[in-house]
């Protein structure tokens, strides 16, 4: 089984990110960039499938600028066998990315596309579903457990009400949620060792047409700090005074 793992480069998900004063973008000065944490969970799951003998080949793919090489090198260190960097400097959106990924999936013919449920920068939660639609493959989103079946997968999904177990035939798109696994820690030697693995640079196969354009970025009004109280009686009085009970 071949697994394709789309990887997105995002600004450090634990950093405090602000809009630039000009409103033209995010102020990422001095901030690190990482693999989107949900994609890292997807990659970890793919590596475990390979370790269990369920998968034979893991291909990581990123669409973006040359700076994304860092995240693909890390993906190789985590356990991808091969990485593809589809180079572009265009602004992207889930429509453009899913269309491009669909073209690559048609060429690479994976049995499974495993990816994060959303990127932590844009929080859009669309690309997996759109990709599944373009390929006309079944989808299972928000996966918290994946088991290989004879010719498909049994996926436990997180839902608004709790959990749901679904079966999907392969090839399929599965998007992963936080609780699927705990990604392994990769030490620097592993990253250096991964330098011998193939990282292919490619040009886009599609026009990368975006459907949604971001006009400006702004910081929401901050919530001001309120009052501190020193006893439960004061707390009860303060809550009662707000008139929200």
């Amino acid at each position: 089984m071949r697994i394709l793992i789309p990887i997105k480069r995002v600004v450090d998900p634990y950093a405090k990110v602000r809009a630039l004063p000009s409103g033209e973008g995010l102020d990422t000065a001095g901030l690190k960039f990482e693999i989107n944490p949900f994609d890292e969970i997807a990659l970890e799951e793919a590596v475990r499938m390979k370790e269990r003998g369920e998968a034979t080949e893991l291909i990581a793919i990123t669409i973006g600028g040359s700076e994304c090489e860092e995240q693909l090198r890390k993906s190789l260190a985590i356990g991808a066998d091969k990485a593809i960097l589809v180079e572009t400097t265009s602004a992207l959106d889930p429509s453009a990315v899913s269309t491009e990924l669909a073209a690559w999936a048609k060429e690479l013919q994976p049995d499974l596309i495993l990816m994060g449920k959303q990127g932590t920068e844009n929080d859009e939660n669309q690309t997996g579903q759109r990709l599944a639609a373009k390929l006309d493959w079944p989808q299972a989103t928000f996966a918290s457990k994946i088991e290989k079946l004879a010719s498909g997968f049994q996926v436990t999904r997180e839902t608004d009400l709790g959990e749901e177990v679904v079966e999907v035939a392969q090839p399929a798109v599965i998007t992963v949620d936080l609780r699927l696994n705990e990604p392994r820690y990769i030490a620097l030697p592993g990253i250096i060792k991964a330098r011998s693995k193939p990282l292919e640079r490619a040009t886009p196969k599609t026009a990368l047409t975006v459907k949604v354009k971001t006009r400006s970025y702004a910081n929401p009004p901050a919530r001001g700090a309120g009052i501190r109280v020193n006893s439960v009686d004061e707390l009860v009085a303060a809550i009662a005074a707000k008139g929200v009970l």
Binding site: S95, Q126, Q129, R130, K211, V212
Partner: peptide
């Protein structure tokens, strides 16, 4: 969660814009 699951799939079929 269920609306994002469904809406993005339909938007993908129609190649339409989607605002999350």
């Amino acid at each position: 969660m269920r609306s994002k699951d469904l809406a993005a799939r339909i938007a993908g079929i129609l190649d339409a814009a989607m605002i999350t």
